[in-house]
Design a protein around this nucleic acid. Sequence first.
DNA 1: CTTCTGACA
DNA 2: TGTCAGGA
Length: 103
Amino acid sequence: MAAEKKQPRADQGVYAISVVSDLVGVGEQTLRLYERRGLVEPERTEGGTRRYSRDDVDRLRRIGELVDDGVNLAGVGKVLALEADNASLQQKLKAAQKRAADR
DNA sequence: CTTCTGACA
DNA sequence: TGTCAGGA
């Protein structure tokens, strides 16, 4: 019959920790450490299983790139914070540009 | 699958 | 410091 999936129900782009570990090529325990460090915040299902969304997986892959570049977890967390702040600034900038263009 | 502790590079 | 490993 159809391939039975893991704990995650029929949702869109939701992966179990084992799948994410294979995707990012890192141990499962490491992914849990990343979450503990605040690098990623996956959702939890009723059973307590981590539900990594596609966005989370993409973020983990980016973390792997930074680590590969020689950035430690502390640095990665800082980069993530900077990127979040940068996104906020870009949003404001876009709104300001649109306002100026409209005027 | 989850969390914890231990050990190694 | 970060990752892997085994046990509960």
